[in-house]
Design a protein around this nucleic acid. Structure first.
Length: 363
DNA sequence: TCTGGGGTCCTAGGACCC
DNA sequence: TCTGGGGTCCTAGGACCC
């Protein structure tokens, strides 16, 4: 296979940067974007606020304690998606193969581009010029090298590494920097003495298999050596599931109240599905109790539906069957199994002939 | 450190059928 | 009647991502 050139582009401090675009007078001040209510978490923090230890997903109250002088702003999701469309629109205008992953990052396959680095630099400059967003770029022979590099060198990064250079450069970094190694896996690995990427590079695959299973070990060993042949997927299929969930400001113990909330969410979900002309067979509810135990219950129906009455009845039934034993912190409802379970089998007769007739005929 | 919301993928076990 | 294997579907939970 031809040597690939993949770039990972990541907008620095995206949400905070959009807010700064709206409020230029706040430039230079620590900025924290957080939801409202007692259980809000931080959506993002500017680099100035990060210096105080503020990070996304942190409870907003803790962020206030860490950095009382920060300006706290409520999220403005419309502005975020508008800016996101603007940025990736510019990138797509200049680069053919782009896979957006999330609101603020994308992979670009620039293998076929004659001078890929020059193109990337000029796109980054154009994005900055017309939107004010600063994009960090990592370039390598794979998505993994590109992603790891942009993350490691940001903000305002432009890092180009070969696979071998990535192996060497990140050998001393924590295993956690490999995408796919989350907190749980990192902890298990550390327990067995694998703390850094280099530890994993030197590891015996069999030893890793004892921790992660054969597939997991194979994947991790390859990742530690920055082997990755996953494609930049320019076309994304339709969503496989959709859901609504809410964390209450205060835990709710009253089952009747929970059912009212569940029905309301299920109706909204069905409206959204109907608007997209989608219907699913599996109805799922999610319940998080006050002690953080999380339970899901699902039922698969014989036919696909987005009928609110049907979905609400199933959701309520699932909730009643579970009967939360403690006050509830979070309630959610979702639909899945949108596609036909199997491709429509070709009817036995006649179809073949019909199909052939439909083929274009050479003149 | 008392932890949002929206997704994806993987695993494991049980039911059921051939 | 018992045993076994393989395949598929479904459920539940967990890990991870942004």
């Amino acid at each position: 296979m031809a040597r690939r050139v993949v770039a990972h582009c990541d907008i620095d401090a995206f949400y905070a940067s959009v807010e700064l675009r709206k409020h230029p007078e706040l430039r230079g001040r620590p900025l924290v974007v957080a939801g409202s209510g007692p259980r809000a978490v931080v959506t993002t923090a500017s680099y100035e606020a990060r210096r105080f230890g503020v990070d996304s997903a942190m409870p907003a109250a803790r962020a206030r304690a860490l950095c009382p002088q920060a300006v706290f702003l409520p999220p403005d999701f419309e502005a975020y998606s508008a800016t996101s469309r603007e940025v990736w629109g510019i990138v797509r205008d200049r680069i053919a193969r782009v896979q957006q992953v999330g609101i603020d990052e994308a992979y670009c396959d620039v293998t076929e581009v004659e001078r890929p680095l020059a193109l990337l630099r000029s796109v980054v400059a154009e994005v900055r010029e017309s939107t004010g967003m600063v994009v960090s770029v990592g370039v390598g022979p794979s998505r993994l090298v590109a992603k790891t590099s942009s993350a490691a060198f940001k903000p305002n990064a432009f890092a180009v590494l070969s696979r071998e250079q990535a192996c060497e450069h990140f050998a001393g970094s924590p295993a956690r920097i490999l995408q796919g190694v989350g907190p749980k896996t990192a902890e298990r690995l550390a327990g067995a003495g694998f703390r850094t990427v280099g530890d994993l590079q030197r590891a015996d695959e069999a030893a890793l298999a004892g921790l992660l299973g054969e597939r997991g070990a194979r994947w991790l060993w390859r990742a530690a050596h920055f082997h990755d042949d996953s494609e930049v997927a320019t076309r994304r299929g339709p969503a496989k599931s959709r859901s609504n969930e809410t964390t209450f400001n205060e835990d709710i113990a009253d089952h009747a109240e929970l059912e009212r909330v569940l029905v309301k969410m299920a109706r909204e979900l069905c409206e959204g599905l109907a608007g997209r002309d989608r219907a699913g067979r599996t109805v799922r509810i999610k319940v998080r109790l006050d002690d953080w135990t999380t339970v899901t219950r699902a039922r698969t129906l014989p036919e696909r539906t987005n009928d609110a009455d049907v979905v609400c009845a199933v959701a309520v039934d699932l909730l009643r069957a579970y009967a939360p034993p403690r006050p509830v912190r979070l309630l959610g409802v979702g639909m899945a199994a949108f596609e036909d379970p199997e491709p429509r089998p070709a009817p036995a007769r006649a179809e073949v002939g019909d199909g052939q007739l439909a083929l274009p005929v050479e003149p």
